[in-house]
Amino acid sequence: MITKIIALIIVTILASFATTPPISQASSSDIKKREGIYQYAFITYGPAFVPICLTLNTLIYAWIMISPDPYPFNGIDKLSEWTLVDIVSFALILLGGLLRIWCYRTLGRFFTFAVVIQHDHKLIKDPPYSLVRHPSYTAAIMVTAGLFGFYYPLGEAIFGEYGQTITVFVIATTSIMTVYFFAKRVQYEEREMAMKFKDEWEEYARSRYRFIPYMI
């Protein structure tokens, strides 16, 4: 149980940090105009919404494990035990979160959640950007997938016999929204990079591996 609680704390802190803008971003009106309302909502409310949800999930998860009668939730006897899904999910969150932080440090002031080409912007080719075309998006997908797997048992704990159905629906819906967001974001970002850096971007893009074909 102790190791699971420690893991919950690590997951909450790391995933929250990975979804928080390292520096201030463009104004709301600029994001709406350039990227659209859906991207605006994702960028503006996501950094606040995700940490709150993670904290609530962690508190409920820990309460169910610790409390002998965690009314009104449904007790799960083995929630405190590690499963293969837990281990894989935790590894994804850990690796994805650290990769995301690496991207923050590599890009520095050029890393913003909104796509902003600064006047003195330069094309960063240092690791991890020398290895993967869009490592920050790759990291975000790893963290998202890990969170789905790690918190999956809470569906049954909260919703009882309907827990699995509701959880699968939430995961499927969120996954579609997330993939759509990143797909649109990659298209927009690459278009902006091509306009700014032209031949330098084309040479860079051709030589970098895509984690997911045609997307990231």
Rank of each mutant, 00 (worst) to 15 (best):
P72C: 01
A48I: 13
A48E: 01
H119S: 15
F90G: 00
V132N: 04
T144E: 06
V115Y: 04
S136H: 05
T83W: 04
A114H: 02
L131P: 03
Y129G: 11
P68G: 09
C53E: 09
Y129H: 07
H134M: 06
L123M: 02
G108Y: 06
V132I: 15
I87H: 09
K78S: 13
V50L: 09
N57G: 13
S67D: 12
I60Y: 06
Y137E: 05
L84C: 13
K78H: 14
V88E: 04
I66H: 07
I60E: 04
K125H: 03
A139M: 10
I66R: 12
G75K: 13
A48R: 15
G75E: 03
A145H: 11
I117H: 10
L107F: 07
T83N: 06
I64T: 03
F113N: 02
P135T: 07
A145S: 14
F49L: 14
K122A: 08
N74R: 12
M142W: 05
A62Y: 09
I101Q: 08
R100Q: 12
E81Y: 12
L95F: 09
P72V: 08
L98Q: 05
F73V: 06
A48H: 09
I64H: 09
N57F: 15
L131V: 13
C103E: 01
H119N: 14
F113Y: 14
P128N: 03
P135M: 08
L84S: 14
R105L: 10
I66W: 14
S89G: 01
P135K: 05
V132A: 06
K78W: 06
V143L: 02
D86P: 10
V115E: 06
Y61D: 07
Y129C: 11
L92Q: 05
D69E: 15
T58Q: 02
D69V: 11
M142T: 02
V85C: 13
D120E: 13
K78Y: 14
Y137K: 04
M65R: 03
R109W: 01
D77P: 09
I141Q: 06
